[in-house]
């Protein structure tokens, strides 16, 4: 194997070519999203099996869930995905302030989702519907609860990105974390897109 001078900088520090860094970060996030899907996968598998086994129970008990609240949360989350996607485009065009505004809206949507969920859970507990009530409610609480944790994680990530953006870290030339963080936020939306019909709309 020949060794030929390739790089001028060979001192300390592992400067990776920014293009490689961008592509690696994005690819890394896609891999991570795959693991998230499989983390939820166990719950989806359990859902499929128990729903087939206890179709009646699922139909009866799903009536306890509030379709309106679920639908509102769906709209909220999809809207937040829209603002997130527009935020990525904004910073790619160098519009830093627009990104800040869009990030704030996205974060607020996430919080609204959480508040909504808080009231929903509260109402369930009032009616003594807990994870131990039945297989259906166990699934309901596990699936929405794990999803909620991801919403919180997403809000945290977006808040950090917002702070960094306000400090002027991102530009048209460097915005990898925004795009990668955005991918994570969209995953939260993706999973909810399945949870909504599976839990709230059983006919």
């Amino acid at each position: 194997m020949e060794e030929i001078a390739m790089e001028d900088t060979h001192s300390h520090g592992h400067q990776i070519d920014p293009k490689v860094e961008y592509s690696a970060a994005k690819f890394g996030m896609w891999l991570f999203l795959g693991t998230e899907i499989l983390l939820f996968g166990g719950l989806f598998a359990a859902y499929a099996i128990f729903r087939a086994k206890y179709a009646e129970l699922f139909h009866e008990q799903h009536k306890e869930l509030d379709v309106t609240l679920g639908a509102i949360n769906t709209v909220v989350l999809i809207f937040s995905s829209l603002t997130m996607a527009m935020g990525v485009s904004a910073i790619q065009r160098g519009k830093r302030n627009l990104l800040s505004i869009l990030l704030v809206i996205t974060i607020l949507c996430g919080i609204a989702f959480g508040v909504n969920k808080y009231f929903e859970y509260g109402a369930k507990f009032e009616h003594h519907l807990t994870p131990g009530t039945s297989i259906f409610f166990a699934l309901y609480f596990m699936m929405t609860g794990l999803h909620m944790l991801h919403v919180f994680a997403g809000i945290t990530i977006l808040t950090v990105l917002l702070v960094l953006n306000l400090k002027g870290k991102f530009s048209a030339n460097y915005n990898t974390p925004i795009e990668v963080g955005g991918l994570y936020w969209h995953l939260v939306d993706l999973i909810w897109i399945y949870l909504f019909p599976l839990l709230y709309l059983i006919s």
Binding site: L38, I49, M84
Partner: peptide
């Protein structure tokens, strides 16, 4: 939203493979 349409084959592979495994699991 996630720009998968504009991604390369590699990303597609690793986006779809987990779904295949999920189908296997179920």
């Amino acid at each position: 939203f996630m720009h998968l349409k504009y991604e390369d084959k590699l990303t597609w592979t690793f986006a779809l493979y987990p779904l295949f495994l999920l189908a296997l699991l179920i």
